[in-house]
Amino acid sequence: MTSVTVPTRPSLRERKKIRTRRAIRRAAYRLFEAQGYDGTTVEQIADAAEVSASTVFRYFPTKEDIVLSDEYDPVMVAELRARPAQEPIVASLRHALLGPLREMLADEGEFEEMRQRLRLVRSVPAVRARMGENIQESSRLLASVTAERLGRPEDDFEIRVVVGALIGAWSEAIFHWLDADGGADLAAVLDRSLELLAANLCRPPA
């Protein structure tokens, strides 16, 4: 029987941190919507979230990070670690990417934040540049966890290529959805992009 690791629930301290991060992000999005990204200062965001500016910077090193940071990566990693050890890489990554996203999209507030985030990525060069850095960080994280599960070196070239291809397909699908005015089911669009890639991607040898 295949052993499956059950993701642990975040500690009370971590849950409090998550609530603070969310409060800061939601205050920021309200201000961005009302007065624009460039017209909003970190001090204004702090006031709206009822925290200090130093607290904002403790959670988000830059204003761009307020837009782009979320709780998705840790949940995605937990999902990936919980997949069966013998499952093909692409299938494991597909589950890890889509599972947390479906939960996020089920929350109307989270879904609207995602739409706002993507609009800012499209319209603000600094946010777009920072997103590129974040995508690289997420790719490295997923590749490292995948290599760990398979008992391979952390910098395994084949795994990095597969993960990079999946993340690239994911990004293209998201912006395709946004360019089409977000009318389609985003999770279905993303699932289709990974399905297409999986059908044409040669899996690294075991």
Rank of each mutant, 00 (worst) to 15 (best):
1 M>G: 15
4 V>L: 15
4 V>N: 13
4 V>P: 03
10 P>A: 07
13 R>G: 13
13 R>K: 13
14 E>L: 12
16 K>I: 10
17 K>C: 12
18 I>F: 07
24 I>C: 00
25 R>S: 06
26 R>V: 08
27 A>Y: 04
29 Y>F: 15
29 Y>K: 07
30 R>M: 10
31 L>Q: 09
33 E>Y: 01
33 E>K: 06
36 G>Q: 03
37 Y>C: 04
37 Y>P: 09
37 Y>F: 04
38 D>N: 13
39 G>S: 05
40 T>Q: 00
40 T>F: 02
42 V>C: 12
45 I>G: 01
48 A>P: 06
48 A>L: 10
54 S>A: 13
57 F>L: 05
58 R>Q: 11
58 R>F: 14
59 Y>W: 06
60 F>Y: 08
61 P>D: 07
62 T>P: 03
63 K>C: 06
65 D>I: 02
66 I>T: 04
68 L>H: 05
70 D>P: 11
75 V>A: 14
75 V>P: 07
76 M>W: 08
77 V>H: 08
79 E>Y: 09
80 L>F: 00
81 R>I: 02
81 R>D: 02
82 A>N: 04
83 R>H: 05
83 R>D: 00
84 P>N: 01
87 E>K: 15
88 P>T: 01
90 V>A: 11
95 H>K: 12
95 H>M: 11
96 A>G: 03
101 L>H: 07
102 R>A: 10
102 R>P: 01
104 M>E: 14
104 M>S: 12
104 M>H: 12
106 A>N: 11
106 A>D: 12
106 A>C: 09
107 D>G: 03
109 G>M: 06
111 F>R: 14
114 M>P: 06
115 R>M: 08
116 Q>T: 12
117 R>E: 06
118 L>T: 08
119 R>K: 13
125 P>H: 00
126 A>M: 10
127 V>S: 07
129 A>D: 15
133 E>R: 15
134 N>Q: 14
137 E>S: 12
140 R>M: 09
140 R>V: 09
140 R>H: 02
142 L>R: 05
143 A>F: 01
144 S>D: 15
144 S>Y: 10
146 T>G: 01
147 A>E: 01
150 L>R: 15
150 L>P: 05
152 R>E: 09
152 R>Q: 05
153 P>F: 05
154 E>R: 14
155 D>M: 06
155 D>R: 14
157 F>L: 15
158 E>R: 15
159 I>Q: 03
159 I>P: 05
159 I>S: 09
160 R>C: 08
161 V>K: 07
162 V>C: 09
162 V>W: 00
163 V>Y: 02
163 V>E: 00
164 G>D: 02
167 I>Q: 13
167 I>A: 11
168 G>R: 03
168 G>A: 10
170 W>V: 05
171 S>Q: 15
172 E>C: 10
174 I>Y: 06
175 F>K: 09
176 H>Q: 13
178 L>M: 10
180 A>W: 10
185 D>E: 13
185 D>Y: 00
186 L>P: 03
191 D>Y: 09
192 R>K: 14
193 S>G: 01
193 S>P: 07
194 L>G: 00
199 A>E: 13
199 A>M: 06
200 N>S: 14
200 N>P: 03
200 N>A: 12
201 L>M: 08
203 R>F: 08
203 R>N: 11
206 A>I: 12
